[in-house]
């Protein structure tokens, strides 16, 4: 990694964590997640279940709703804002490579994303304390779940970065990445309607179904296929961003 990358990363992290906007997002996100966890715990309290509280937490509506809404919102400004304000010219006329710029923005957003999830570990700790540690925690399954959440985040952040590089309109960037992410996410639900379409289609849908991946990992099964899928998707969208950044130079 070049020095320019670290300088840019520091600047991007500063832009994120010193901005009041991220703090509001942070607070509201944890409001929803806290409610979601309370909901899961209340569900568990109704009687004996054959799932753990974290297993429900990772597939419940609140969880994936936030997953597909949050990322477009905090990635929309990455390039769009620089195009709108003209600072892209400052950035690109400095002695930096396109990849320095792209990767610094990418990793800063990933850091924000990971930061959003950290407090959810506190929920688990509170839960354990309140139940006097009578509920066993499957640390392996928990680790796998958080790993998958992170990897899905990489993919979706790369999509957000890509759409932000396409336009100087932040709203358009957010909506475009939301559409791509939602389409990918909801493909999994086609499983309900694909009963009669044959083996191949059903397997393809299974391969893409994010919710099913979450279920698998939260249940403690470590499957490499989803990891390959999300990581290669990340690589693809980062590369597409690079192409767009290089091509935009020819037009403006």
């Amino acid at each position: 990694m070049t020095r320019a990358f670290w300088v840019l990363l520091k600047r991007e992290l500063g832009a994120i964590f010193l901005s009041p906007v991220s703090h509001v997002i942070f607070a509201l996100f944890n409001l929803v997640m806290g409610f979601s966890f309370w909901f899961c715990a209340a569900y568990m309290a109704q009687g004996a279940r054959n799932v753990t509280v974290m297993q429900i937490f990772f597939i419940i509506f609140y969880f994936w709703f936030c997953l597909i809404i949050m990322i477009p919102i905090f990635t929309m400004r990455l390039f769009a804002e620089e195009y709108r304000s003209g600072t892209i010219e400052l950035l690109m006329s400095a002695p930096v490579l396109e990849w320095d710029v792209i990767l610094s923005k990418f990793f800063a957003s990933v850091a924000l994303y990971a930061g959003l999830w950290l407090p959810t570990l506190v929920y688990l700790w509170v839960y354990q304390a309140l139940t006097r540690h009578q509920v066993p925690v499957e640390w392996g399954a928990l680790g796998a779940s958080y790993l998958l959440v992170l990897v899905i985040g990489l993919f979706y952040v790369a999509i957000g970065l890509f759409t932000s590089s396409l336009t100087k309109n932040q709203v358009l960037a957010a909506f475009a990445s939301f559409v791509i992410i939602a389409l990918l996410f909801f493909t999994g639900f086609l499983g309900f309607t694909a009963a009669g379409t044959g083996e191949g289609t059903a397997r393809l849908i299974d391969y893409l179904a994010t919710l099913k991946h979450m279920q698998t990992f939260a249940g403690g099964v470590f499957d490499t296929r989803p990891l390959v899928f999300y990581l290669s998707g990340t690589g693809l969208f980062l590369f597409l961003t690079y192409v767009v950044i290089s091509l935009r130079k020819l037009r403006y």
């Binding site: 300088v7 600047r11 832009a15 003209g86 600072t87 400095a94 002695p95």
Partner: peptide, 26 residues
């Protein structure tokens, strides 16, 4: 290079911005 209309990062402080730019330019 000073571009037309002088685009700058509005959220940064002057000294902080210049230190960032200095480091970026090596």
């Amino acid at each position: 290079y000073m571009p037309e209309n002088v685009p700058l990062y509005p959220d940064m402080r002057v000294a902080e911005f210049l230190a960032y730019r200095a480091a970026l330019k090596g």
